[in-house]
Design a protein around this nucleic acid. Sequence first.
DNA 1: GCCGTTTTCGGCCCGACTGTTTTCAGTCG
Length: 576
Amino acid sequence: MTNADVARIFAEVADLLEIRGEDVFRVNSYRRVARTIEDLPVDINEIAARGELTGLPGVGKGSAEKIQELLSTGKLQLREELVREIPESLLELREIPGVGPKKIALLWKERGIRSLADLKAALEAGKLAGLKGLGDKSIQQIKEGIEFLERSAGRVRLGIAAAVADLICDRLRRTRGVRRVEPAGSLRRGRETVGDLDLLCIADDPDLAIRTFTELPEVGRVLAAGQTKGSVLYQYAPGQSLQVDLRVVPEESFGAAWQYFTGSKEHNIRLRELALKRGWSLNEYGLTEGDKTIASRTEEEIYAALGLPWIPPELREDRDEFDTPPPEDLLTLEDIRGDLHVHTTESDGIHSLEEMVVAAAARGYKYLCIADHSRSSTIANGLTPQRLEKQMEEVRRLARKTRGLKVWIGTEVDILADGSLDFPDELLSKLDFVTASIHSGMGRDAATNTRRTIAAMQNRYVNVIGHPTGRLIGRREAMALDIEAICREAARTGTALEINASNLRLDLKDQHARLARELGALVCINTDAHSIDELEEMRFGVLTARRAALRSTDVLNTRSPAEIMKFVQAKRNKKK
DNA sequence: GCCGTTTTCGGCCCGACTGTTTTCAGTCG
C-alpha cells in the first residue's frame, strides 16, 4: 500500500463521513491526515515501522491506528462500514461545482440517486422538482456544473497557466487606468498544476478593467462580471478552457488581498489563527483590531505584524514555514548561471548547436552543456559513439570561438536495464559533463529501479541523474523508486540530482527536492530544452526548487564554470 | 479526530455569493 493509496482512502472516508452528516471538525481531521500523507516524501510504511506515525502533523492516536490497520490488512474497518451504508459511487458527485455533501445526501435520500449517471437520468426526466431547498435555479446550476465537468480537463500544467497569465496580464497592463496587475493563487506559489487562475489588479476605472477582461477574444463564457470581480472561461486551445478570475482591489488593501488570494488555504488558516490569538482578525481587506486597521497595504506589513518574516509564496503550503524561517538566500532565477542539459538537432532537438549557444548567451549564461541522447534512445535519434566523437569536435571548435560563454560537450546517456550505461567509460571520460537518465523499462519494481539508478551514480563519470523519477505530469506516473536511498547515494558519491525544469516533468518534484536537501544531496536545475524557447522553462525549475526551500548553495548550476569543473574532477579523482 | 507558554476539555478561520429564504444553509476559495 503506497502513500497515495493511504491518502486516497482517508480522503474518501472524509467525504463519506461528510455525506453522513458527521461533525465537520472530525471530517476535516481525516482530510488533514490525507494531505499530510500525500505530501510525504518518504514511504509511510517505513514511518509506521519506526513507530513514528503520531509524530506526523495532524496524526493522533486514532489516525495512527487506522493507518497501521490499512498497512497491515490492506483494509479499513471504518471505510467498509461506510460503504455498506453509503453508495461509494456517490463520491463522483463531489466533482460537480456547486454540489457539496448536503446536496448529495439530499439527492440520495430523497430521490435514490446513487451516481452521476443516476443524476443525469433524473435531470433528464425532471425528477428533481419539488425537493426541499432545491429550486429551479439550483437544478439549472447542477446541469451546468455537469456540463462544465464533462468539458474541463481538470487542472492544467503550470506552463500553460503561466502562458495564459502572462498574456492576460500584459493586455490588462495596457488598459487605461490600470496601475498594477499581479497573478495570485497556485500559479504564484509555483504549484506543478493550476486549477484556476487568480489575477488581482488596481484600477482607476474598475468597470473598464473588468470589461476589458471579460471581452478578451479568447473568452468562451463569462461566469460573473460585477463591480469588483470578473470570472471567465478562457479558451487557451481548441476545446480546452481554464477558469480565470480577476479581482479589482483598492490600493490600500492590495497586500491583504494578494496574501489572501495567493493562499494556500491551509497557510491562510494558520495565519488567521495567529491573528486570532492576538485578538485580531485577518481577511482579504486587512489585519484589524475592531475598527482599527493594523496592516493591509503590503504583504510584508501583515507578516511582520504577526511576528513573522515575509514568507515567499512558494513556501505557503502549511508545511514548516511557520516554524522554520525561510532561508535568507532562497534560490532565485538570477542565481542560475548555466544550463547543463539541452539537446540539438543532432538527436531530437529542433534547433542547431549554434542556435542553442546563441540563445544561451543571450540569457546571460556563463555555460551551456550539450547533452544529446545516446544510441539506445533510437526514437530520439540517439548518437552512436562515432557520432558523439564527431559532435565533440564540433562543440570544441565552436567553444574556442565563443566569448563569455563556456560551451561544453556532454551527453544524456541512457541507464540500461541492468544499471550499466549506454556508452563505455573510455568515451565518457573525454566529455566535460555527464547526465545519465532512465528512458526505458520504468515499469519495474522499486528495488530494481533504485538499483539501476544507484549503479549509474556509482560510475565516476556520471555527474547528474536526469529526471530521476521519469514522471510526465498528467500523462505518466513516476516510477516506483526509493527516493531516500537515491538521495543518500547521491550525497555519498558526489552526484547531483536533476530538477528537470520542463513544465511537463518538474522531476524531482518539490517534496523530493526537499528530501535531497535534507540528506545533503546537491540539486542541478536543467531545462532539457529541445528548442531555444524551452530555455525559458528554467523559471519553473526555480519555482520548484523554491518550494523545496533550496538555497543557491544547494544548487550546482549557481556555481562558476571553474567550480563546476572542480565538481566533475572531484568525483573522477575519488578513491573507490 | 486533533491539540495545548492562556487549555487535557472545549475549542477548531473567514467572508462572499447564491438560492431559497423572512434570518439562514450550503458551497466555495
